[in-house]
Every structure is written in structure tokens, then in C-alpha cells.
Design a binder for these strands. Structure first.
Length: 524
RNA sequence: GGCGCCGUAGCCAAGUGGCUAAGGCAGCGGAUUGCAAAUCCGCCAUCGUCGGUUCGACUCCGACCGGCGCCUCCA
């Protein structure tokens, strides 16, 4: 008891923007010190594209910050592995739906791993929860919120007084045409909880005959199973707010009689500049050329390329940095140019890491992480004039993260941090001669940078070596020879030769840098 | 038509009723360097338009213009 209180008391105060209230709210968990977090995952019928990665990276960062700050977090991301699109795609490819789902789930997981998303605790599959889904639907029917109709089951939107509260719509405003099953629905806005199987489709037995679950019910049933009736954070892309999350709320709160999630967090969508034509949305006035040039959301309909192909051209670190450079609720402008820019920005960090390793022999990537309390204690121990600056930048970072996970400011403070450390190295002349005291401070600063970059999930692993194998050693010794020859030329003031060597290497993609402690080279 | 979001420097992107309007990329000047590269220092925006509220607004309100999302599968 005392221990729990103490643990809770040390938790920082943070604020989270809640789509439900359209405002930032102080973060209060359902149970002290613990967080249950649910993110709507992919429908695994095609390789994932960049749009599928936004939510996972954002919520991975959310989890990292919460865990770092002292909470115990359980993060669930569901896998939709039964659905019209899966049926269609597996039929087209002549494989089973289960095989298709397995293949695409593996693809998804590999992409997440590349981006450093490693905090997911549970990835429930809809097909593993059919029993729970059926019980959930039965409960809704018993309570009068749902009805069976010709082998289907629908949620009766008119029975739910709150319906539309997430998106501020009335039932009338949500009326579509009701789709192909309009004749079975009481209201056009009713949505399917259970769909009767057509001949040849994968199906499960149920009280209403063979069929499969609707899309919305999966998330209600799986979050209930893994996080309980009332959990803390429910996340997803802004495009899921309606109807998906609205319907989840309708289902779960109608059955349980309590809030489903305390905080509804929605991330902005990827935008591709210059994409032609409008994709989503109903056409407004006539067509117009101006709109055709505007940025549009990246989605499957725009033919977004598989994420794997993107990874072949861009480092995952640059992609993650780009995602975190924009506030999570804003749209992210995405494309080759922003990505290239992000990669260039990344290099400032990596040059500092390389510099640090040259000076101390310590790899930044090998530095130990630490939690928030330990970090605060460690920073207080720094005994140098830069201590105040280190502490200030760290505070700025943490305040930003506490304020609705403002990663853009957090990243900005990290760039300031890099400058601070470089300046420290410069002003102490550490590259000219070692200085034990200054080096202790340098270590402390780098440990702090390690602490903070880990919260963002950045620089988790050293970049893979450009070329592997036996060639590497050979190139290394050749480079040593060339650099030695050039050093002799420079000593002899034969700058023409020295520059010839440097220029030629430059054309070969090798960059030379003359530093106080010698010449270094890197591959461009 | 309904619901919601946005419009900040060449580009990307934070943010605040009054204090220097973050940071990145690009650019310019300087220190450093044999020259470069890297690093450091400095410079580079009055916040879509028009009105209103206020002692004071980029920040609140209104109108307008422009863009985006959702209302159909979508992260």
C-alpha cells in the first residue's frame, strides 16, 4: 500500500488531448500507476504502407514516455484477419485467408521492427476471439441494443442515446443509403455486428447461423478481453473516428454501462503533396484543377507503395524522425524530399556520436538507458558550468512530452542539445588533448542524450555497416595507406597532391575530414 | 449539404494575449582550416485577408478567401 502510494506520487502530471472532449485533460488512469492502451491495427490483406506505420510509431512513443515516467503500460494492437478484403484478396491469389493473413502480418511486424516499434504487448487476431465476439453480440441483443435479421445482426443505433457523441453527429446526420443490406436494417445508420456467410466464404458457427464478425465489434470484444470494460487510452488514425470508433463506443458502452476508454487519441494522416485527384470524400462542386494539385491523404486507394519498398530507399531512422518532427495530431507532409531532409538532419546526431566515440572510445549506442527519476538524479550530479544548460534542455524536452506528447518540441530540444555538446567539446579543446574532468561532464551529457533519444525510440541501434565481410578490412587498410600518403604530402606542403587525393576520393563517394587529431573518412 | 481541422520565413514545422515567434533543411556573413569538410558564432518571418473585442492579438470573436479530413473500405 505504502509502496503503491509512493510509486503513484512520483508520477509526473501529464496532459492528453481527448477527441471526446476536444480539449487537453490531465491524465488520470483507471487504476493507479497502470495504463491500458489500445490501438486499432491493420487489416492484413496487403503489404503495409507508410500510412500504417504512423499510429504504431506515435503510440510506441507514447508508451515509451509513459513507461519511462513510471507507469506500467499494457499496449494492445489488434490484427483484423477476417474481412471482405481478405476474402477477396485470398480468392484472387488462390490461397487461404489464414495464409494471406499470416503473410501480411509478418510483413507488418517486420516493418514495425525496422522502425523501432517494439513495445506492443498483445496483438490479438480477430479470428482468435470469435467466441468473445459472439458473447458480446449476444449481450447486446439481450439488452435490446441489437437485433438479428436474416442471418445478420445489426446494432440498433436509435436505442443508443449517446450515439454520435464522439463526432458530434445525430443519427440523422449519419444516414447513408444503408448499403446493400438496407432492407434488413431498421435504420440506415445501423451497422453490422455479424454478417451471414455467403456460400464458400470462411465462416464460424453462431446462434444466427454461419457467418463472421463485423469490423467494429472486433475491437470492442478484444479490448474488453485484454484491457477490461474501461481502459485508459484508445488510439487510431483520424480517419477511424467515424464510423469505427463511434461504433466501438456505442457497442462497448451500451453493453458495459461505463466509459470504454478515458482518452481517445487520434493521429493525423499522411499527406502526399501533388497527388492527383481527390480520393476520399464525396465530390463537392464540380471538378477543379486547383484541388487536383493539393495534398491528399495517402491511403490504399492512392496506391501507396509497400513500406518495404520505401525502406529500400530510406533509412527507418529518418522515417521515424520525420514522423516525430510533426505534432501527432497534425497531418504529415510526406514524400521523397521531406524524407531526404530528415535524413540530413539525422546526420548531425550521428556525427556527434562518431565524434564522441573518437574522443572516448565509447559507443553512444552502447550507453545504458535510464528512467526519468534516475535521469533527474544523474543530471543533478553534474558538476560543471554546462550542468544548468543540460538540465534546462532536458526539462524542456520532458515538459513538451508531458504536454500531449509534443514530440516536435522534444526533437527541437535535442538539436539544441547536440549543439551544446559540440560547443562543449570545442571550447575545451577535447579534440586536441584529453581532459579527464571535461570528459566526465561529456559522458554525463551523452548519457542524458541517450536517455532522451530512447524516449523517442531514436538511435536504438548503431547503423548497419555499409559493406560487410572481408572487403571491409581491405578497404580499411587501403584507406589508411592513402591517408598516410596524403598526410606526407600535406606535411611537405604539396597541397596539389593532397587535394588531388581528396577530390578523387570524393568522386568515389568517400569523404575526408582533416581534424586536429588526424584525418577521418566516411562513405557518402 | 452536415461534422471537424488547418493557413507561421525559400521549404518543413512548434508556439504564446504583452517577455528573444522553437527547431530542422536550404541560403548568406564570420571564427576555425594550407584549402576544404565538420564544428561554433551571427543573419534570414510580424504569423492568409478584412473587421471586432482588448490598454495590448499572430494568439480570443466574426466574416471572407484558400487547403485538408470524415460523413463509403481506410492507420
Amino acid at each position: 500500500m505504502a509502496a503503491t502510494q509512493q510509486a503513484t506520487a512520483s508520477l509526473p502530471e501529464i496532459e492528453i488531448y481527448n477527441t471526446l472532449s476536444h480539449a487537453k485533460e490531465p491524465f488520470k488512469t483507471v487504476s493507479p500507476g497502470r495504463v491500458g492502451m489500445y490501438l486499432c491495427g491493420p487489416t492484413v490483406y496487403k503489404p503495409s504502407h507508410i500510412g500504417h506505420m504512423v499510429g504504431p510509431v506515435i503510440f510506441d512513443t507514447v508508451k515509451r514516455h509513459l513507461v519511462y515516467s513510471g507507469w506500467q503500460v499494457t499496449w494492445v494492437v489488434n490484427i483484423t484477419d477476417v474481412d471482405d478484403k481478405l476474402i477477396a484478396e485470398s480468392t484472387a491469389r488462390g490461397i487461404s485467408m489464414a495464409d494471406l493473413a499470416r503473410e501480411m502480418t509478418a510483413d507488418y511486424l517486420e516493418n514495425l521492427a525496422a522502425l523501432g516499434v517494439d513495445g506492443i504487448d498483445e496483438m490479438p487476431k480477430a479470428t482468435d476471439h470469435i467466441g468473445g465476439i459472439i458473447r458480446f453480440i449476444e449481450g447486446l441483443i439481450e439488452k435490446g441494443f441489437a437485433y438479428a435479421a436474416a442471418g445478420d445482426v445489426y446494432f440498433d443505433v436509435t436505442r443508443d442515446e449517446d450515439y454520435g457523441k464522439l463526432t458530434n453527429r445525430s443519427v440523422e446526420q449519419t444516414q447513408g443509403e444503408g448499403g446493400s443490406t438496407a432492407d434488413r436494417k431498421r435504420s440506415a445508420a445501423d451497422f453490422a455486428l455479424w454478417k451471414q456467410a455467403k456460400p464458400g466464404e470462411p465462416s464460424w458457427e453462431s446462434p444466427w447461423g454461419p457467418g463472421r464478425p463485423g469490423w467494429h465489434i472486433e475491437c470492442s470484444a478484444m479490448s474488453e478481453a485484454l484491457l477490461g470494460d474501461h481502459f485508459d487510452i484508445h488510439g487510431g488514425g483520424l480517419d477511424l473516428v467515424f464510423p469505427h470508433h463511434e461504433n466501438e463506443i456505442a457497442q462497448s458502452e451500451s453493453l458495459h454501462g461505463c466509459p470504454m476508454a478515458s482518452y481517445w487519441m487520434h493521429n493525423g494522416l499522411m499527406q502526399a503533396a501533388g497527388a492527383a485527384g481527390k480520393v476520399g470524400g464525396r465530390p463537392r462542386d464540380g471538378g477543379d484543377d486547383a484541388a487536383a494539385q493539393a495534398a491528399t491523404k495517402i491511403s490504399k486507394s492512392t496506391g501507396a507503395e509497400p513500406f518495404k519498398e520505401l525502406l529500400a530507399r530510406h533509412r527507418p531512422e529518418a522515417i521515424r524522425l520525420l514522423l516525430l518532427s510533426t505534432h501527432y495530431r497534425s497531418p504529415i507532409h510526406f514524400g521523397e524530399e521531406p524524407l531526404a531532409e530528415s535524413a540530413r538532419a539525422l546526420e548531425a546526431f550521428e556525427r556527434l556520436f562518431a565524434r564522441y566515440e573518437r574522443l572516448t572510445g565509447t559507443s553512444f549506442y552502447g550507453l545504458p538507458g535510464r528512467d526519468r527519476q534516475a535521469g533527474t538524479a544523474a543530471v543533478a550530479e553534474i558538476n560543471d558550468s554546462v550542468a544548468a544548460e543540460v538540465s534546462r534542455l532536458r526539462d524542456r524536452f520532458l515538459e513538451a512530452m508531458d504536454d500531449d506528447f509534443n514530440t516536435a518540441i522534444a526533437v527541437a530540444s535535442l538539436f539544441d542539445f547536440v549543439r551544446l555538446v559540440n560547443k562543449f567539446i570545442d571550447s575545451h579543446g577535447l579534440e586536441k588533448a584529453p581532459q579527464p574532468e571535461a570528459q566526465t561532464t561529456l559522458d554525463a551529457a551523452m548519457l542524458t542524450l541517450r536517455e532522451l533519444t530512447t524516449v523517442l525510440g531514436l538511435f536504438l541501434e548503431a547503423p548497419a555497416a555499409a559493406s560487410g565481410g572481408a572487403d571491409e578490412a581491405l578497404v580499411g587498410s587501403l584507406m589508411n595507406l592513402v591517408i598516410e600518403l596524403r598526410a606526407r604530402a600535406r606535411k611537405a606542403k604539396d597541397f596539389a597532391t593532397a587535394d588531388l587525393i581528396r577530390d578523387a576520393l570524393g568522386e568515389a563517394g568517400i569523404l575526408l575530414e582533416d581534424r586536429p587529431d588526424g584525418t577521418g573518412w566516411s562513405q557518402k
